[in-house]
Amino acid sequence: MTTFIDQEASRRDFLFIATGTVGAAGTALALWPFIDQMNPDASVLALASTEFDMAPLAEGQGVTIKWRGKPVFIRHRTKEEIEKAKKTPLAELKDPVARNANLPPDAPATDENRVKDATGKVNEKYLVQIGICTHLGCVPLGEAGEYHGWFCPCHGSVYDTAGRIRKGPAPRNLDIPPYKYVSDTKIVIG
């Protein structure tokens, strides 16, 4: 009797383990569609790009437009704002990286790198950035805060006139979306 069980055991063990493995792997694989259905769907991904003409913006004027459901700040900066941003030494910045989707991820956060488009064109008057605080996603207020750039009312993050984080809990500069100039004043975001 014992020998009988022993002989059968190896074959049974194999079948048990094989069945268990297929069952576990199958369940794990079947889980993926249930997880992935929560990711952005095709209709959301399709709304990828927006065009905007900045010519009507007067100096010192800014607008907020919508791209992928997010606010995008477009600001025609004054001369003083540009000067102030340019004069800031990089060593004073909390986040030394440009956070510009059009540049390599390690590009330094100079004022020039904050206004560069995907083709390398620079028009320092126009600053285009995603209007979402990098802390917890509130929309910061313009021309506010200690550096007269942006100020987030939720948890007190302060950005300068180039949208770089200077004080408060936010870890990164405001993100620059991917965009390029299609004429001197017209841009395509996305």
Binding site: I35, M38, N39, P40, D41, V44, R68, G69, K70
Partner: peptide, 13 residues
């Protein structure tokens, strides 16, 4: 976060 939202911001999904 995008997975939680089902998009690029809090929206209908």
């Amino acid at each position: 976060v995008q997975w939680l939202w089902g998009g690029f911001s809090v929206g209908n999904p």
